[in-house]
Amino acid sequence: MAKRIEVEDLDIYYGSFRAVRNVSMTIHPRAITALIGPSGCGKSTYLRALNRMHELIPAARVEGRVVMDEQDLYAPGVDPVDVRKHVGMVFQRPNPFPTMSVYENVAAGLRLNHKRIRKSELDGIVEESLRGANLWEEVKDRLGKPGSGLSGGQQQRLCIARAIAVKPDVLLMDEPCSALDPISTHAIEDLMAELKENYTIVIVTHNMQQAARVSNYTGFFNIGGTGEPGELVEIDETPTIFSTPTHTDTEEYISGRFG
């Protein structure tokens, strides 16, 4: 579980448009890395490049290396499907499968990955994952009900349960709380703090306080101007970034948002 990722000189293109330029960073295991930066600077683009989700967009491509376990995820012959089994993702909008029950949602990934799985074993993993996502107590009596019948915050935790049920090494989260109320946000933040014991977590957030509260490392992305590629300005331990950042851009962005 929980693996280190080394990103080396990553460029990401949409067709001929370079959206992200020359990113290198180390993503530490058993820690939360937060990515912050103004809108359009390529945070989502970068995050999705870490599990090759961007390949769904026809013209999108990547140059550079993303190394996990001494394996470049972009090496020829690496199957993006395998990459995504190891690097899970939680999205901005909660997206439990609406045609499936709570139980089936959590089991969905397992049914894909190991076709034959005993019911008792599946029950165990579903419960464990829901407990892991701090949702078990709230849904244990309605496992057979549609997942879309839960509240937004519960749905997002259901999505986290679904993602951790397949036991990935890394969990990517793109603004997982931006559609949620403060209480649900708090629940997810608590959950992240627990999950980092076992996972490598990367989270994109627009919420400075959230980055400061939950993350161990913070990376600041910025963009030169419209049409320019986004780039990583700096990444460091979160307290350092928020107290004594190296770049004035970082300081201005952070203080602007705090002020």
Binding site: M53, L56, V81, R84, M89, N95
Partner: peptide, 14 residues
């Protein structure tokens, strides 16, 4: 919705 297709793919679905 793309949302759900992405959810499946992110779980490692072919």
């Amino acid at each position: 919705p793309k949302l759900y297709e992405e959810a499946a793919l992110a779980l490692g679905a072919t």
